[in-house]
Structure formats: C-alpha cells, structure tokens
Computed example of a mutant assay.
Amino acid sequence: MRSSIRVRPASRVSGGRPVRSLVGLALAGAAAAAALTGCSMEDATCGGGEYPVLRVGGSGSACQPDGEEPPKGYARYPEGKVPEHVGDKWDTYWSDHTLDKNGKIIKLKDGQ
C-alpha cells in the first residue's frame, strides 16, 4: 500500500520559495538599512554619552562624560578636528600632534 503523505524538502517553505532566498533577502535588507542610517562598522572613539579629550603637552586621549569639563591636563579637541572613529583622519593626525598649555597645536617629539 502506498502512503499519501508528502514530505517537503527542508530547504523550502510554504509557497515553494527556497529558504536561502529569504535569508539572503533579509541580510541584504539589513545591510541596506545600516548604510542608509549611517551605521558604521568602525570602532567609535568614545561610547554614547561621552566625548573625546586630548592630553595637553603629550600623547594620549580619554573619554569624558557629556556635560562635564575635561579633567586637569586634558582639553577638548579643536572644533572640526575631533576624531570620531579609531584610525580615522583625525585619530591618525592626533597620534603625533597635541595642544600646548596655550591651546596651540604642536607636533610631538618622539617618545612624548
């Protein structure tokens, strides 16, 4: 006697569409949404609710909570020259530059 039960392949869902196509479509949609909303895969310089500060007279930086002034020995980056992501243009620039005690941009000497 023949059975009347039909088994569907695991790679298909109702309607006959391959699961692979649906997964690919979902991934493509997520990538497009990330690109359109400005999401980045780069590491941010600071976390949410923080801003980066620069060590005065030497190399180094830190993250300061929004609304608080930089700690002693640190200053805000000059406007328009604030690093946003690790390895971006300004992050690289500030690896060998800093501010002096008067707020003037200076080039660091080796080992500073």
Rank of each mutant, 00 (worst) to 15 (best):
M1G: 04
M1W: 06
R2G: 01
S3T: 15
S4Q: 08
S4I: 08
I5D: 12
I5P: 05
R6L: 09
R6Y: 07
V7A: 07
V7M: 05
R8T: 02
P9C: 03
P9Q: 07
S11Y: 03
S11G: 15
S11H: 12
S11M: 10
S11A: 10
V13H: 00
V13A: 12
V13C: 09
G16A: 04
G16D: 04
G16H: 00
R17C: 06
R20W: 05
R20D: 04
R20K: 10
S21C: 03
L22S: 11
L22A: 12
L22P: 01
V23F: 11
V23N: 04
G24V: 01
G24Y: 00
G24H: 02
G24C: 04
L25S: 11
L25G: 07
A26C: 02
A26Q: 01
A26N: 02
L27F: 13
L27M: 12
A30Y: 10
A31K: 03
A31T: 05
A32E: 04
A34I: 04
A35R: 06
A35P: 03
T37A: 14
G38T: 08
C39E: 15
C39S: 15
S40W: 12
S40V: 15
S40N: 15
M41C: 09
M41A: 15
E42Y: 14
E42S: 15
E42M: 11
E42T: 11
D43H: 13
D43R: 15
D43C: 10
A44I: 05
A44C: 08
T45N: 00
C46Q: 03
G47D: 15
G47M: 13
G48M: 13
G49R: 02
E50P: 00
E50V: 02
P52K: 03
V53C: 01
L54C: 04
R55Y: 03
R55K: 15
R55A: 12
V56L: 02
G57C: 09
G57H: 02
G58M: 06
S59W: 05
G60Q: 10
S61C: 06
A62G: 14
C63L: 02
Q64Y: 08
Q64S: 11
P65L: 01
P65N: 04
D66Q: 13
G67D: 00
G67R: 02
G67L: 04
P70N: 04
P71L: 04
P71Q: 09
K72Q: 12
G73C: 05
A75N: 05
Y77P: 08
P78V: 14
E79L: 13
G80S: 13
G80D: 14
K81A: 12
V82K: 06
P83M: 05
E84H: 08
E84T: 05
H85G: 00
H85N: 02
V86S: 13
V86T: 14
V86I: 14
D88G: 03
D88F: 06
K89Y: 11
K89L: 12
K89S: 13
K89H: 14
W90G: 01
W90Q: 13
D91G: 05
D91F: 10
T92F: 09
T92L: 14
Y93Q: 12
W94G: 01
W94F: 11
W94H: 03
W94A: 03
S95K: 15
D96Q: 14
L99H: 00
L99V: 00
D100C: 09
K101P: 01
N102W: 06
G103R: 14
G103E: 03
K104F: 13
K104Q: 13
I105C: 12
I106F: 10
I106T: 07
K107A: 08
K107R: 15
L108D: 00
G111L: 09
Q112R: 13
